[in-house]
């Protein structure tokens, strides 16, 4: 499933890297602990988190993730948006909770990273 379709289905707001929406999403991972994300999330995964600071861009970029979903209306730091645009990392925001986002992703057939 393409990132674009996920954004449409979940009503996610695309904040950065619109050019990356054509990417195929290989699976999903949810955690707010960065080392856990580093250990588990796989290339092409969509990452669901509450963290909005710039280091999430480094993590997503290093792991070649398809995109980051910031939940519960978390507003990414200004530095995060600038950096994400530079690195071509798609940041998507939603008022939904992480739990609901993951549930909807599962319904769409996006599997877990494990």
């Amino acid at each position: 499933m393409k990132l674009k379709e996920i954004c449409r289905e979940l009503g996610l707001e695309v904040r950065t890297a619109k050019e990356k929406l054509g990417r195929e999403v290989t699976g999903g991972y949810a955690s707010d602990l960065l080392s856990c994300v580093m250990a588990r999330a796989q290339s092409g995964n969509i990452w669901v988190t509450l963290q909005g600071h710039p280091n999430i861009v480094a993590v997503a970029s290093l792991l070649n993730l398809a995109g980051i979903v910031l939940t519960e209306g978390v507003e990414p730091d200004a530095g995060t948006l600038t950096k994400a645009e530079e690195e071509g990392v798609a940041i998507l925001t939603t008022p939904l909770t992480s739990y609901s986002v993951v549930g909807k992703l599962f319904d769409l057939g996006v599997p877990g990273a494990d």
Binding site: D32, L33, S35, C36, M38, A39, H53, N55
Partner: peptide, 15 residues
Amino acid sequence: EMGFGAGVGLTNVKR
């Protein structure tokens, strides 16, 4: 609170 310092960093390196 920023999601760092979970105590698994060196474990990740070792792996």
